[in-house]
Write a protein that binds this DNA or RNA. Sequence first.
RNA 1: GUGGGUGUAGCUCAGACCGGUUAGAGCACUGGGUUGUGGCCCCAGAGGUCGCGGGUUCAAAUCCCGUCACUCACCCCA
Length: 416
Amino acid sequence: METRTPRGFHDVLPDEVRRWQFIEDNARRIFDLYGFSEIRIPVLEFTEVFARSLGTTTDIVEKEMYTFTDRDGSSITLRPEGTAGVVRAFVENSMHAKSPVSKLWYSGMMFRHERPQKGRYRGFYQIGAELLGPEDPASDADLIAMVWKFLESIGLSDRLTLEISSLGDQRCRPQYKEKLVAYFKPEADRLCPDCRRRLGTNPLRILDCKEEGCRKIAAGAPKMMDNLCGECAAHFGAVREYLGSAGVPYTINPKIVRGLDYYTRTVFEVTTNELGSQNAVAAGGRYDGLVEELGGPGTPAVGFATGMERLVLLHEKAHPGGFRREIKVFIAYVGEGTETAAFRLTAALRERGVPAEMEYGGKSLKSQLKRADKSGAVYTFIIGEDELSRGKVKLRRMETSSEEEVDIEAAPALSF
RNA sequence: GUGGGUGUAGCUCAGACCGGUUAGAGCACUGGGUUGUGGCCCCAGAGGUCGCGGGUUCAAAUCCCGUCACUCACCCCA
């Protein structure tokens, strides 16, 4: 048998998990502060849910989904992102009827069949949030502010850049796209092969090309920002104002392109230059048409998602060390009948809420103390035959090596 | 899907260009130095299909071919 994970999947080992928990704890705390509730949804959906949501011509749907046929013949897909499933749950449970605004967050593993590289996996964790109901620009700004607060809370904001833009809506975006294609068409043979392809599939991406030649041509291209319809322009202006008043530092990047079809109006990205080429740690935007697309009542919404592995990678660079599990008290024992006493003392300590760990099997006292040391214990109880016969145990303070005898009955009640 | 780099002990890596005894180091682990006392130090020990398969050769970790994996980048994205 193959004793390894499939390509692109990875284990998160205990030492690392502490850091994950730190990030997750802060996410939970900040989201709660902003009035978001957690929702838990399946890791798989009918394929249709993703195909309709993300757009049938997007890379994710075309070539990156883990899709299989269920026993009854239906097509099932492991979720490549979180929004589609949350919106499906929103519609299926008629959440619109329960409240004019739903604030939901989720976390869990997503699946995309991509070629792995630094910060990019086939099975990866995302934390995300969706704010459904309001169309008001204050909701865009509130969500973005929450993302920023979260990143601040884990000590990363000084290494991150927040960029925002507007993609327009059903009215102005198609017009802009045409304008863009009309601009690039005559230059097609001077574009790189990728961009010639993009001209047909996703002309907005040409603006983002890294090729020098394409960048020169793109520099003179019409900008979405200048082609927003009146309502979209007003919306974007208001979002900026709210962000400013919330003290969220952002820059405008008109070249932001999203890979999913459902985005409208506000889009944003949080990036770093410390993670190689996978530089986006969080991204999101408004998707006013998606709820209706999935069969619900017309409901505007904004949302975002962040990649846990990327956050963890960055957090490791920013704040190395400091996430080891530590036990408060270690219980060592040596001699006849001491193991039972150790077992009871350990249990009694835990009963009082003191994190305690005991030796199993009784090696030399030396090796027990070594283990105590490694466990990070502040105190070690040493139970020896002599002391035990007098109803005593030794309490060793690890840092100073000082020891004193205490009554074994009173030991669990000491203040640690 | 396309390109580059790398696979030697649990981890980080020497050894490879120039084939030649039992393949090394540091860290980690175990035991001892201390018949019941951690960290520092000293001594000892355990741990390896040199990714896998084939080829060349008297002889391959080392040279050749293939293959797999990992990794970085492109594409795309969190």
